[in-house]
Amino acid sequence: MKFLDVPTLLQISTAFNLMAALAWLVLAKAFRIAPRASWLMVASHLARVPHLSCGDCMVGWPAAVRLGLTELLLLASIVLLLLALRRMLGSRVRPRHIAWISGAGAVGIVAGMASGSAIAPQGVNLLTVAVLAALAVREIWRGVGDRLSTGITVCTALPFAALFVLSLLQASLLILVPGWGERLLANPLPGPWRAALGLMLTVGISLSLIALMIWRLIMRIQHLTHRDPLTGALNRRAFEQALAEAQAQLARGRGFALIMIDIDHFKRVNDAHGHAAGDAALLHCVALWQASLRELDRLGRLGGEEFCVLLPLSSPRDQAAAAMIAERLRARLEASPLRWQSQDLPLTASFGVALPGVGDARGEGVLARADAELYRAKAEGRNRVCVADQPTPGPA
């Protein structure tokens, strides 16, 4: 059939890989979007081009060498692709397992070339690619499985799962079916359906990576929109939105507490050691407090050295639990001075704790009560926790 003409399909695949490499290059150089991952994608696409466009370049070479070099390039392309995928997903685990698997695969291919076998390099590479494709599926599921819907996660992982199945199937045919390898060697070009599947897999994997890139860009925009650029805590607007949402849940029995925080004598740090030390102090405090809070708690920077924690409570009126957490935050900061230019700078903070009242849609009443307790803590000597009285029923 015309549309399954193998040389045409290979030309289309070559053109697609070249255009994809150019697109990733533009993302890396012009737009600076995930530049390291983009450069890895450029290299991954380019590694496929010799195999697709240079079928006659190695005519006359020993079959083992010709096939071995082709399999090494294909393996390199998959490894680069997996490394790019990990960077897009923000994986912090060192890719030692990828290095071991790909290294073992490369050694197996070279050993097959050295032995003169024309079948061994392809079989080793197919098994290695199957394992790497399975790792890619796992990376996607770990990276976005809890942040995207199941359907979107499955669609993103599907091309890698298909690569795993097809690689395993080809390896099984090569090993188990007598004469299968000889038939592949007799024809230097892949069969029409194999060429078509290769093109479809390349396009599908590229679309998955583009989707992950768009997701990463959206997440970055959301982070910049909702986070304080220095400390990474919620900015005032995002915190007020979280407070309004928590206040709306109050009628359903989902209580919370506010902990207002102000770093004591912060101006002295700036005046004595400079604004760089002040920024370091803010980062130090936020890091300590975030480590002491749960994932569902919300820490926001309201301005300057003033912060606030929105603390969901298992019991709506459990003011003692909120006060205990505030005391833990206070004690941890007092016990952990900032290390700045070979000296320890002691830091403390004052805390005000308050529970919300009903009829306060935007949470202004609970903010005011927590703020009043904060000022009482500062007036009583700083470095302490003050707790507001329980709010009376009715509007705050």
Rank of each mutant, 00 (worst) to 15 (best):
L302V: 11
G191Q: 06
V129T: 09
L199V: 11
N187W: 00
F31E: 12
L163N: 12
L127V: 15
A354V: 05
L127D: 01
L46K: 07
A396L: 08
T202K: 06
V137W: 09
P190I: 13
T348K: 08
A120P: 00
L367A: 01
E334A: 11
Q241K: 07
S314A: 13
G394F: 00
R294Y: 13
L197Y: 15
Q247F: 05
I261E: 02
V110I: 09
R183I: 06
P178K: 00
F351R: 00
N270S: 03
N125R: 12
A281W: 02
Q122I: 11
R298M: 10
L82D: 10
P190C: 11
L158R: 08
R32E: 10
M219D: 15
I12R: 07
R339A: 14
G55F: 11
A372M: 00
H226F: 14
A277P: 00
L174A: 04
L82H: 13
R252V: 02
R227P: 03
L338C: 01
I140Y: 12
H273G: 08
L80D: 07
L313V: 02
M41G: 07
Q249T: 02
S167C: 15
F351H: 04
N17W: 09
L230S: 05
L173R: 14
P178N: 01
R384G: 04
S167P: 05
L81I: 12
W215H: 15
G394H: 11
L89G: 04
A377L: 09
D389M: 04
A23G: 15
Y375P: 06
P356R: 02
V107L: 15
S342E: 15
F160Q: 07
R328W: 05
L234V: 03
R48M: 15
L126A: 05
F3G: 01
A331V: 13
A276E: 15
P316E: 04
L333C: 03
D271C: 10
L185D: 06
Q390F: 10
D360S: 03
A23P: 05
A233S: 14
H226G: 03
L75C: 06
S91D: 10
A47I: 09
P190A: 09
H45Y: 12
A349Y: 13
P62C: 07
P393W: 00
S149A: 05
A76P: 08
P391M: 01
V203E: 08
D371S: 14
L299P: 01
I12T: 11
L185R: 01
M19F: 15
L345K: 12
I221W: 12
V6R: 01
P62L: 08
L126V: 07
E139I: 11
E373I: 02
F351Y: 14
P192S: 02
L333M: 13
G381H: 12
V110N: 08
G143Y: 03
D371V: 01
V366D: 00
A246V: 04
N17P: 09
W39A: 11
A276G: 15
W141Q: 12
V137D: 06
W193M: 13
L345M: 09
F164R: 06
A233M: 10
A379C: 03
C386I: 02
V49T: 10
V154T: 13
S115T: 08
L52T: 07
N270K: 08
V42M: 09
